[in-house]
């Protein structure tokens, strides 16, 4: 029950089948990594889980703690405990980070219930310190004029504040220099724990030096073709994605 289960999932985008009978089980408390070359369906998986309207689920099932989320709107999935750190987070002009996160938390409260402002800021500052984010940041508009590293740290900050049950990190390492990568990874590691399952989607092994996964899955042409422990990532790094193509891809 305490897991995210993806069963026989088939997903098309604009009529093209991208995910093919995709299977994965992510228990809470574990970190799984999904690796694979570009165009193999990694980001499609993230978007389909989050419920993006362009991604059509033609068959299969997604169960969050045993409950199907397929009929849920993206915001209902989010409130059910699913978080996605975007590869390309949107800019929301004029909305400060503090107000944005507040609105997201407020959306989880019952109607008429108000958040306590001082407690909110105390928690926000605590998480910002953890992610080495300057406090001046709170008044900046969401993602507007942010560097790549700032955008990703902002995503992890939101994850820390929203306390999801399952988090999907979609190419969180892209566009990060090594220092930013360390900070983001430390943030993710600090959030690891029994109550949270994390799915790290990445093209490069590099990130997994910092966020050490319990399991690594290799993806090819819309499905997982091999699973293993963290050493699988190293092997993949060493042999390159051609190895996947020649050795692992089904004929």
């Amino acid at each position: 029950m305490n897991q995210l289960e993806i069963k026989n999932l088939n997903v098309s985008v604009a009529g093209n089948e991208i995910l093919k009978d995709f299977e994965l089980t992510l228990p809470k408390g574990e970190v799984h990594a999904i690796m694979g070359p570009n165009g193999t369906g990694k980001s499609t998986l993230a978007k389909a889980l989050a419920g993006h309207p362009d991604y059509e689920i033609t068959s299969g099932e997604i169960l969050l703690d045993g409950e199907s989320i397929l009929e849920m709107e993206p915001d209902e999935r989010a409130r059910a405990g699913l978080f996605m750190a975007f590869q390309y987070p949107s800019e929301i002009p004029g909305v400060s980070i503090a107000n944005f996160i507040r609105a997201a938390l407020q959306a989880r409260l019952a109607e008429g219930e108000e958040m306590e402002a001082t407690a909110f800021y105390r928690r926000l500052y605590e998480k910002m310190d953890m992610l080495k984010i300057d406090r001046k940041f709170t008044s900046r508009s969401v993602n507007e004029g942010f560097s790549g590293g700032e955008k990703k740290r902002n995503e992890i900050l939101q994850m820390a504040m929203l306390e999801p049950k399952f988090a999907v990190l979609d190419e969180t390492d892209s566009g990060l220099d090594i220092d930013a990568l360390k900070v983001v990874s430390e943030g993710v590691n600090a959030l690891r724990g029994e109550g949270l399952g994390i799915l790290v989607i990445t093209h490069y092994q590099r990130l997994l030096n910092y966020i050490v996964p319990d399991k690594v899955h290799v993806m090819w042409d819309g499905r997982i073709v091999q699973s293993g422990d963290k050493d699988l990532a190293l092997k993949l790094e060493e042999k390159g994605y051609d190895w996947v193509k020649t050795e692992l891809a089904p004929a």
Binding site: G51, H52, S90
Partner: peptide, 23 residues
């Protein structure tokens, strides 16, 4: 933008409202 905000738990109406208030 709406999808991004919805992924954070806001309803479509709340997301639009937040964008307008930001504007």
């Amino acid at each position: 933008q709406i999808f991004y905000m919805q992924q954070r738990g806001m309803t479509e109406g709340q997301a639009m409202s937040l964008s307008v208030n930001g504007f």
